[in-house]
Amino acid sequence: MSDRSLTVAIASGKGGTGKSCVAASLMVSIPGLLAADADVEEPNLSILLGAEPYASSLVETPWPVIDSGKCDRCGECVRACRFGALYMFGKAFPSPNDLCHGCGVCSMVCPRDAISETGRPVGEIRLCRAGEMTLFEGRLKVGMPNPIPVINATLDAALAEGRDLVIDCPPGTSCPMVAAVREADMVVLVTEPTPFGIADLDLALQVITDLKKPSVVVVNRADLGGSNIDALAEKYGTRVAARLPFSRGVAESYARGKPPASVDDQWKEAMIAIWETAKKTAGR
């Protein structure tokens, strides 16, 4: 037994399977957990927890600034930028655009040391509270293309608390999801028993298996669809930990912004069982 804190990530190959419902239900079923909303494009956990923001901090990425006193318009920086983010029009000095990834290559290559860096806000971390519960919510600024810095900053802030943590991950199987599950002791994959659910769970399990993360599967709306999730889970050496039927009651409470476990005992029991599994998986 160790008293190391436990981190559980809630993910899904596609959106809308009930990922945030599971995350919020864990929060209201297990006392004392901290939450992080890493679905920074569409953060919904605060809505479900009824959590209000009380503090926030900006997430910034580096942004090049060209000193026109030093720049001789040689164009080295424009040629070195692999994102097409620097342009030099007519007689103007080079200037960066929205495609900038803040990689720092332009300032590395400038022979005249004319490029310095400042910060550009790409999102924020909001600290939210509902009763005893605390949530770190990452929010990507609308119009910003890259969610990864906001995901990383949100997780770093939440992990620094050193408490048992539930992470609501971005949907899908590309780099944002991988970034969000990186520190998890166990990943809960939420799916539904439809052909869509199966196809997307298959992709998600490939990624989670590649990352060598222990996982369990939660089948939401288990009575709608009829596809066989067990066989797929078995193929990847994982298992279905809970099956939650469709219920109009749950759907209506979700619509009003209430997590299923606060109105449905079956959800609550499933959450307690999942948390126990996570503890065992992490050797606690």
């Binding site: 692999r82 990834h101 990689c103 720092g104 290559v105 990864i148 780099c175 991988v178 970034a179």
Partner: peptide, 13 residues
């Protein structure tokens, strides 16, 4: 490869 943005900074240094 999942996180490599392809900026080439590493290759330059």
């Amino acid at each position: 490869k999942t996180f490599c943005e392809g900026c080439s900074a590493c290759a330059l240094v």
